[in-house]
C-alpha cells in the first residue's frame, strides 16, 4: 500500500519520519486509538437503535444477543402511533420554527445596527451585550419563571404558550455578536450603492445584508434548531398542558410517569427524539463544521 505522506500538513510527526518503520508504527497506533475513540462516540446511539428493535424478553436474555433476532420495521410505526409521536413532533417543529424566525429577525437586526448603523450611544449596548455573555444565568431561573407567569406591564400569563421560548431565542447575545461580525465583512460598496438609490436602513438589511450573509444565517438556523429541539427545562416548567409538550419534554415525562410503556418501546421513543437533529447534522455536516470555526472565533 502506498501512502502519500506529503499530504500531511499538520502535526508533530514529519512526512520524512513516516517513511521509516518506527514512524509508521506510531502513526498507525494513533490511527487505531482515535478510531476506537470515534467508535465510542457512536456505540451508545447504535446500541439504543439495536436494543429498541429487540423485544423485552430478548433484552433481558443472558448472554445478550448482538443483533435483534428478527428485524421488524413495522415496530417503528406501531410505537410511533402508540405514543402519538406525530403530535409531539409537530409541537417541536412549531417551537423550533418560531424560535429560528424570531432569532434571525431580531438578533439579525440587532447585529445589523451594531455593525453598520452604529447610532450615538451604541457602544454602551455593545459592551452590555458582551458582558451579559459572561454572567452566569443561574440566578435568573426563578425570576424568569415568575416573569412568564405574570408579564411586566401587560400582566398576562404565558403559561401553556410557546412565546417564552421564542422570546428567549431572541435574547441570544452570542448570535447577535455573530451576526455583527458577519455583517462587518459585507462589502461597503453594496450598501453605499443602495443608499444612493434611496433604500432605507431596513431595506438595506432585508435586500442586501441578509441575502449576502445567507450561509451564516443557515448555520445559525441549524444550530438554533438543534438547540431548541433539545430544550427541556423551560418548556417542562411552563407547559402544563401535556398535549403541548415538545418531544424533549415528552421523553422525560414518559420516564417519570411511565404509563404502560415497555422498555424497548421507550428506547425507540428516545431514538425518535434523537433522530431529527442527527439527520440534520448528517445533511449539513459541512456547514456545521464551519460553524465551529466561527463559534471558536467569538469565544476565543
Amino acid at each position: 500500500m502506498h501512502i502519500d505522506w506529503e499530504r500531511k500538513k499538520s502535526g508533530a510527526l514529519l512526512p520524512v519520519e513516516l517513511k521509516n518503520i518506527r514512524g509508521k508504527l506510531i502513526y498507525f497506533t494513533i490511527l487505531v486509538i482515535v478510531l476506537i475513540i470515534a467508535l465510542i462516540c457512536l456505540v451508545p446511539v447504535l446500541w439504543l437503535v439495536i436494543t429498541s428493535m429487540k423485544d423485552v424478553k430478548e433484552i433481558y436474555q443472558v448472554p445478550p444477543t448482538l443483533l435483534p433476532k428478527h428485524i421488524d420495521l413495522m415496530k417503528f410505526k406501531r410505537v410511533w402511533d402508540k405514543m402519538s409521536f406525530f403530535k409531539y413532533y409537530k409541537n417541536s417543529f412549531i417551537l423550533c420554527a418560531g424560535a429560528i424566525l424570531a432569532d434571525i429577525a431580531i438578533s439579525g437586526l440587532a447585529g445589523y445596527v451594531l455593525s453598520r448603523l452604529r447610532p450615538h450611544g451604541i457602544r454602551a449596548v455593545h459592551t452590555a451585550i458582551f458582558l451579559t455573555m459572561l454572567i452566569p444565568g443561574t440566578v435568573s431561573l426563578v425570576p424568569l419563571f415568575k416573569t412568564f407567569l405574570d408579564m411586566p406591564i401587560i400582566h398576562v400569563s404565558l403559561v401553556d404558550t410557546y412565546i417564552p421560548m421564542w422570546l428567549m431565542a431572541c435574547a441570544n447575545c452570542f448570535n447577535i455578536l455573530i451576526f455583527k461580525s458577519t455583517f462587518d465583512s459585507v462589502s461597503k460598496e453594496f450598501i453605499e450603492a443602495a443608499q444612493i438609490d434611496g433604500c432605507s436602513n431596513f431595506g438595506i438589511f432585508l435586500r442586501i445584508v441578509m441575502p449576502l450573509s445567507l450561509p451564516v444565517i443557515m448555520v445559525i438556523a441549524i444550530l438554533d434548531f438543534t438547540g431548541v429541539w433539545g430544550e427541556f427545562l423551560y418548556p417542562y416548567l411552563l407547559l402544563q398542558n401535556k398535549d403541548l409538550y415538545p418531544v424533549a419534554v415528552k421523553i422525560y415525562d414518559l420516564k417519570v410517569s411511565g404509563g404502560g410503556i415497555l422498555l424497548d418501546e421507550y428506547m425507540m421513543a428516545l431514538f425518535f427524539t434523537i433522530i431529527p437533529p442527527v439527520i440534520l447534522f448528517i445533511v449539513f455536516q459541512k456547514q456545521m463544521m464551519n460553524g465551529v470555526s466561527f463559534s471558536g472565533g467569538v469565544k476565543g
Binding site: I37, T226, L270, T273, V278
Partner: peptide, 14 residues
C-alpha cells in the same frame, strides 16, 4: 470528525 461531533447534536436530556 463527524463521529466526534455527533454526540454534541444529541439533546442534553436525551
Amino acid at each position: 470528525k463527524s463521529s466526534l461531533y455527533l454526540p454534541q447534536i444529541v439533546p442534553v436530556i436525551a
